[in-house]
Structures are given as structure tokens and as C-alpha cells.
Computed example of a mutant assay.
Amino acid sequence: MSAVPNQQLLVDQSVDLFGRIGSLETRLARTPREIDAAQAVRYRVFVEEMKAQLPPDAMRQRRDVDAYDAFCDHLLVVDRAIEGDIEDQIVGTYRLLRQQVAIAHGGFYSASEFDIAPLLARHPEKQFMELGRSCVLPAYRTKRTVELLWQGNWAYALKHGMSAMFGCASFPGIRPEEHALALSFLHHNARVKGEWMASARSELYREMDLMPLEAINARKALAAMPPLVKGYLRLGAMIGDGAVVDQAFNTTDVLVVLPISSISDRYINYYGADAGRFAS
């Protein structure tokens, strides 16, 4: 049974499709049933694979569910080649939260780990969107699926006039020192500065500067990063100051900040034609 109210998400199917590659398509969830299926995919990845510990109700339901699900948009990757109901066809998902919606419902999820209020305050004329709960089933962790997710994010941002994206990206485990090479590379080479500066909350702050710059092998550091983090970097993202250990999800989190203006031209050109068409 879905945790999302039935009045939520009676989406016009003509405006929520963001891209197709072969049998895969990316679009917004249209019904509470589809959101429930996305929550089941999240449970499989976060709990069964990554060993997250969710609240007892969520563990009983075998769903990754929280209060944000009721008012976020849920981006899906659906494989139409899979026989069966929609529950069987959803293979990837992202949770999207626009600033206007976040303000109306008490703020962004990321604010529980990172001090993003100064970042938002420095850009009163800009609209931010938060990307969260990204996951893809193991068999679909391919370039094609990632491209579709990003085509969906990009089309959604264009459709709603967003100025910047941000969100948490995770390294496995709760010992930042096990990711010293990758975290140090991000600290020295991709840390946010100036008007886009944001830091981990002071009471949760964990140091990312674990190795000196001269000791870092960039190729090995990139190879040690989760694919999602590498994908963000390729798009032109910056990484916040300090990491946060999330005991419940068994992860070490960093904050990704991605101004739309920073996305490299080659990716805008790559996604732009289809995304512009689907967002119009």
C-alpha cells in the first residue's frame, strides 16, 4: 500500500515523458502505485544491498518511505520490455524537490546534514532543485540508464526554470578514512567556493582533507569513486566542504552543488535537443 495520498500525482501523461532509449523510458511517476513501486526499488538497493536501517514500519513494508515522498516528484526509468505490471518494470528512480515546494513543506531533505541556508540566501533570484534517493537496480547500472536519468533531470530542470541542482551523494560505509583518496581528491579539486559555498553542519562535519594534494593520484582517485559522483563531476558539479556520516543508511555523504550555468557545453548539447523537446 502506498504511503502517498491518492490525490497526489494525477499527472498528464503527455507532459511527463522525458526520454527514451530502446525499451527504456524516463518519466515522472503518475500514480501512487508507481511511487510505491519506486519505494520498493529503493528498499532493494538501500536496505537489501547497502544494509540501511530504516524505521520499523518501513522495514515491515519493505519500502524506503519518508515524509518527503508525499510532495516530491519521482523520476523513473521504466523498462517496457519487462513483462508484467508497472511494479516489475521500474528499474531506477530519482526523487526531485523544487525549492518552492520545499519551502511550502518545511525545507529540503539535505538540510538535515548540510548547512544550505546561506547558499540559498546568497541566490534569492535563483530557483534550486534537490536531487535525492538515486538508485538503479544492479542489472541496469549501465551508461544507457544513467544517461536516461540525467536526461530526465535536465528536462525537468528546463521545464520548471531551475537555476541549480544540489543533493547528497554517498560513499558506502561509515568510515570516511576508507575513502581517503577519493574524498581528498574532491576536497582539493572540486570543492565549492565563493557564492556557491556550502558546508556540512558543524555538529556532523567530517574532514575530507585526509591526504596532501601531492600524494593524490587523480586516476586512482576517480576510479575509487561511486559512479554517481563521477557523473556529477563530468557535468561540472562542485562538492561541499566536509562529509557527513549517515549511520542509518550506512553511508558517508558529500554535498553536490551543480549550477545549471556550470554544466559543460558538451553535455548541454548532448541532452539539450531531446530535453528541450520533452520539456516544452
Results as ranks from 00 to 15, higher is better:
residue 2 S to R: 01
residue 8 Q to G: 04
residue 12 D to M: 04
residue 14 S to G: 13
residue 15 V to Q: 13
residue 16 D to C: 13
residue 23 S to Q: 15
residue 24 L to G: 03
residue 26 T to N: 12
residue 27 R to G: 00
residue 29 A to V: 06
residue 29 A to Q: 00
residue 30 R to D: 02
residue 32 P to E: 08
residue 33 R to H: 04
residue 37 A to L: 06
residue 38 A to P: 08
residue 41 V to M: 04
residue 41 V to A: 01
residue 42 R to P: 00
residue 44 R to T: 09
residue 44 R to L: 11
residue 44 R to V: 12
residue 45 V to Q: 01
residue 46 F to C: 07
residue 48 E to Q: 14
residue 50 M to K: 11
residue 51 K to Q: 15
residue 53 Q to Y: 00
residue 54 L to K: 00
residue 57 D to H: 06
residue 60 R to F: 10
residue 61 Q to I: 06
residue 64 D to L: 07
residue 64 D to M: 06
residue 66 D to F: 11
residue 67 A to P: 01
residue 73 D to T: 01
residue 73 D to R: 06
residue 74 H to A: 05
residue 75 L to V: 07
residue 79 D to I: 02
residue 80 R to K: 14
residue 84 G to T: 12
residue 87 E to P: 04
residue 90 I to F: 05
residue 92 G to S: 13
residue 93 T to H: 05
residue 96 L to N: 02
residue 96 L to Q: 01
residue 97 L to F: 01
residue 97 L to T: 07
residue 97 L to Y: 00
residue 97 L to A: 02
residue 101 V to N: 02
residue 103 I to S: 12
residue 105 H to T: 05
residue 108 F to E: 00
residue 110 S to H: 06
residue 110 S to E: 10
residue 113 E to M: 07
residue 115 D to A: 11
residue 115 D to S: 09
residue 118 P to I: 05
residue 122 R to E: 08
residue 122 R to V: 09
residue 124 P to D: 13
residue 125 E to C: 04
residue 126 K to Q: 15
residue 127 Q to G: 06
residue 131 L to Q: 05
residue 136 V to I: 14
residue 139 A to Q: 13
residue 139 A to R: 10
residue 141 R to L: 07
residue 141 R to Q: 15
residue 143 K to G: 14
residue 145 T to I: 03
residue 146 V to I: 15
residue 147 E to R: 12
residue 152 G to I: 00
residue 157 A to W: 04
residue 157 A to I: 09
residue 164 A to W: 09
residue 166 F to L: 14
residue 169 A to M: 10
residue 169 A to I: 08
residue 174 I to F: 05
residue 176 P to T: 15
residue 176 P to F: 10
residue 177 E to F: 14
residue 178 E to P: 04
residue 181 L to W: 02
residue 181 L to E: 12
residue 181 L to A: 14
residue 182 A to I: 12
residue 187 H to S: 10
residue 188 H to F: 13
residue 194 G to T: 10
residue 195 E to R: 14
residue 198 A to E: 07
residue 199 S to A: 15
residue 200 A to E: 05
residue 200 A to V: 10
residue 202 S to Y: 00
residue 202 S to V: 05
residue 202 S to K: 08
residue 203 E to A: 05
residue 204 L to V: 00
residue 204 L to M: 15
residue 206 R to D: 14
residue 206 R to A: 11
residue 209 D to Q: 15
residue 211 M to E: 10
residue 215 A to N: 04
residue 215 A to E: 07
residue 215 A to F: 06
residue 216 I to V: 09
residue 216 I to P: 00
residue 219 R to C: 11
residue 220 K to V: 07
residue 221 A to E: 05
residue 223 A to Q: 09
residue 225 M to T: 11
residue 227 P to G: 02
residue 228 L to M: 11
residue 228 L to D: 06
residue 230 K to D: 08
residue 230 K to G: 12
residue 231 G to E: 14
residue 231 G to R: 12
residue 232 Y to V: 00
residue 241 D to V: 13
residue 244 V to K: 13
residue 247 Q to V: 04
residue 248 A to E: 07
residue 249 F to W: 03
residue 251 T to M: 05
residue 257 V to G: 08
residue 257 V to D: 02
residue 262 S to W: 03
residue 262 S to E: 12
residue 262 S to I: 01
residue 271 Y to G: 08
residue 276 G to P: 00
residue 279 A to D: 03
residue 280 S to M: 15
